[in-house]
């Protein structure tokens, strides 16, 4: 069930001083008082911070009058919203049907091994977050993964690890 995604890890949340809440003002201005504004508000907030910090929930709730619990309910319902910080590069490994049939598990396994993280986790250096997603819609290039806006197709475990290695090299230089 979807609600399983609630994972509040207090210690991982950034402290209030690290979050610049004034960034939120333009989106609050844009959506305040409009009906059906909750999802666009949360999407806008996530675009700003990469995830939705606790303080942002509180601020949005205070400013718009939406119940904090309603907001949290929506944020945990949809796969898009994150409550924890993510790595600089989000690796989305596609696990759609076509990719599954073409052995997407091997891709995830290879990346897990080379980054030493579990699915959904971020590397300690904050460079990578590994995610499994339902379908990226590039089925004929299966198996695929997406890093940033770049899609990599017709992968094998080996070539996937190599892509990661190349990005790491680039980041370190």
């Amino acid at each position: 069930m979807r609600i399983k995604r609630i994972q509040v890890q207090e210690d991982k949340q950034t402290s209030a001083s690290a979050v610049d809440l004034s960034l939120l003002d333009p989106i609050i201005e844009k959506y305040k008082g409009k009906r059906g504004n909750m999802i666009p508000l949360l999407q806008g907030a996530q675009d700003l911070y990469g995830f939705i910090p606790r303080e942002v929930f509180v601020k949005l709730s205070e400013e718009t009058g939406i119940n904090l619990s309603d907001m949290f309910g929506v944020a945990t319902f949809y796969a898009q919203f994150r409550l924890n910080p993510v790595g600089k590069n989000i690796i989305k490994v596609c696990h759609g049907t076509a990719c599954h049939v073409q052995n997407a598990t091997a891709i995830t396994d290879a990346i897990k091994e080379s980054l030493n993280v579990k699915d959904g986790e971020t590397t300690p250096d904050g460079l990578f977050t590994l995610e499994s997603v339902a379908c990226l819609g590039c089925c004929s290039l299966a198996p695929v993964m997406m890093i940033g806006n770049e899609t990599y197709g017709k992968l094998s475990g080996k070539s996937a690890s190599k892509v990661i290695k190349d990005i790491r090299l680039k980041e370190l230089n």
């Binding site: 696990h95 759609g96 049907t97 599954h100 339902a134 379908c135 819609g137 590039c138 089925c139």
Partner: peptide, 8 residues
Amino acid sequence: DEGDPGAF
């Protein structure tokens, strides 16, 4: 909202 994995 084409969520069906395997359809594009």
